[in-house]
Amino acid sequence: MAFLRRAGFALGLPIVLFTLWWVTSASSTDFYFPPLSRIVDSLVEEWFGPRLADDVLPSLIRLTAGYLIAALVGITLGVLIGTYKRLRDLLEPVLEFFRAIPPPVVVPILMLIFGIENTMKIVVITFGCMWPILLNTAEGVRAVDSVLSDTAKTYRISGAARLRNLILPAASPQIFAGLRQGLSVAIILMVISELFAASDGLGFAIVQAQRSFAIPEMWAGMLMLGLLGFLLSLLFRLVENRWLAWYHGLRRAQRAG
């Protein structure tokens, strides 16, 4: 019963909205707002057809590459900056500045330097989503509990073991917060980097559709992008729940206590 209730709540409104869209658009003659049935047709035929390999896959590969590099660089630098106070003081204003630059504005510059191929797109994604990861990691490392840190010291846990057993796990809730912010930035930049100059990719295909007034296809592309954003955040949530199971449990215990 409780399960049915939950399922009802989870699916209720989406079903209502979808039906509403379907019915009100069914006889639509407005060029810009085609019937949902046609959009879904296009989604199934085009986006889950040839475009899946031609456009979606390249986008995803670039996203993954850029994101992973950003995670690696961001966490590494974040640990360093979080560990050494002097370094942090030295770099803080610089980092604040870089973080504040709206990431898409560096696309024109990176285009000049790296051309318009995959390298540029990956660098754009990396550059944009590195800052939240880096800054959150640094903050997490800085805030490692002093008692925990003393405990590790008295048991002579140092070097790599300290990093693995103390620093990284202790900072992991914030590292994940940074990674989550980074992921949404990465998706945005994946699309943006394909808008300027590209021969394939989700962003490219959607704009192509818009420019050639293939409206149902454009709508389908937007839905595809939405679906992708949703699925990636779902995947992220799954990974996070696994990794941070201890943290969520700890927080629940603290709140109950």
């Binding site: 008692v147 003393d150 405990t151 010291k153 008295t154 002579r156 057993n165 796990p169």
Partner: peptide
């Protein structure tokens, strides 16, 4: 520096145990 062969039990048990272990 912390010598080998010395162990400490802190007052703040909640903060001296590794919550992820």
């Amino acid at each position: 520096g912390p010598p080998p062969g010395m162990a400490i039990v802190f007052q703040e048990y909640g903060r001296s145990l590794f919550p992820w272990m």
